[in-house]
Nucleic acid binder design. Structure first.
Lengths: 210, 210
DNA sequence: TAACGACTTGACCGATCGGTCAGCTTTTAC
DNA sequence: GTAAAAGCTGACCGATCGGTCAAGTCGTTA
């Protein structure tokens, strides 16, 4: 029974998943230092020793969790090309980012906590693959502007604008809930917020929705 | 020499200020649980016992720090009225919020950390004075839209958009720096980002800059 | 000078931290 | 059937946590 494809998940796979999910919950809320293995073990309903048996150390668990998040985000983002329609691309960008905020808020908060700490474990990622990703998109945005297909808006700050506005609904959910007075954010809220963001940002870039 | 007005700050005033500033630094980076009094004392260059002598407990220090931040923000925000010009008001709102991100990034990160934890100490503030503040502004925005003075944009989400986009440059400074490759954000960066935000958001709301 | 309140701090407390390890049970392989 | 491998966990380690306390120092006032 070593094969997960034929006989369900291995004991290791099942427990690692429980631990990862529990760790994401605790790290997202309390940050790296504020989280304790004891709390993670309690959330995973496993003894502390068992957690350490699988993950080795707190640091390794945290780094592995960050890597899982970054790869998950990478695969969720589609590539674009200069020939695409600007409005379509930017709207899809906003909506897919907002969907991530709704489906994976803990990942977003984990990342936010890491950045708040000064990104000690993500320095190379930021200056490496993330910078490349931003610059490749920015180059296309710039060409669109040169061709008069959209307003000349600094593309890097536009990307930051979209990132921040969409992540806000994951990272600052407690604030949104407290101010709007709702019990929690539902599908309708995310849909309406997405519509509002698309409306303002597309028009702000001189684009009309498809 | 008990009077601060005539003979400079009291010993108490001076030390409390050192402690508050040090605590803001540590809490903003590591959150409530992740921060330690030892680390705060080291940053304040005081013995741990001396810190506790002044502030009583970690919890009290944290709450007092949050309160200092909230009142500081409240005083920095100007009131608006229905008769004001929408474009002028929203542009001033964006620029003053961005200025706060530049001058008080630690306060912004402290607040962000509190929200990420689920706002355990700011629940009443969110559902109380902050909600009132948002709704009073939202009411004016709505009337502007009814009068055709701006596009019908959901005002609450517009406020969230402005908050998130401006706070981003304080809370996620490490990400902005890592991706842009700069050593740090300077006046020119904040000015350019503010211009970009005003350009996109004002146009996105159907407004033209004054 | 004596006394007082504000300030200072090292020593210490029980609790919890991340992590190790020995010894146990269960599963797998032959 | 049996040995090896994998999984499990209570007991324990030194370090650090938030917080207390007693014994000071210090400047001011009477």
């Amino acid at each position: 029974m070593n094969d997960s494809s034929a006989a369900g998940p291995t004991v290791r796979e099942r427990n690692e998943r429980r631990i990862f999910d529990a760790a994401e919950l605790v790290f997202a809320r309390h940050g790296y230092r504020g989280a304790s293995i004891q709390a993670i073990a309690a959330a995973a309903e496993l003894p502390k020793s068992n957690v350490l048996y699988y993950v080795g150390s707190k640091r390794r668990l945290y780094v592995a969790l960050l890597e899982r998040t970054m790869t998950r985000w990478n695969t969720a983002l589609s590539d674009i090309s200069e020939e695409d329609d600007p409005a379509t691309v930017i709207e899809a960008f906003i909506r897919s980012k907002m969907a991530l905020s709704q489906t994976h808020p803990l990942s977003s908060r984990l990342f936010a906590n890491e950045i708040l700490q000064g990104a000690p474990f993500l320095q190379e990622t930021l200056a490496g693959s993330m910078r490349e990703w931003v610059e490749s998109r920015a180059a296309i945005f710039r060409r669109w502007a040169e061709q008069g297909r959209m307003d000349p808006v600094d593309p890097v700050w536009l990307i930051f604008l979209i990132w921040s506005a969409t992540q806000h609904y994951a990272d600052f959910e407690a604030q949104v809930i407290g101010i709007t007075g709702q019990a929690q954010l539902g599908d309708a809220d995310f849909a309406a917020a997405s519509d509002c963001l698309c409306q303002v940002i597309l028009k702000g870039c001189g684009l009309t929705q498809a």
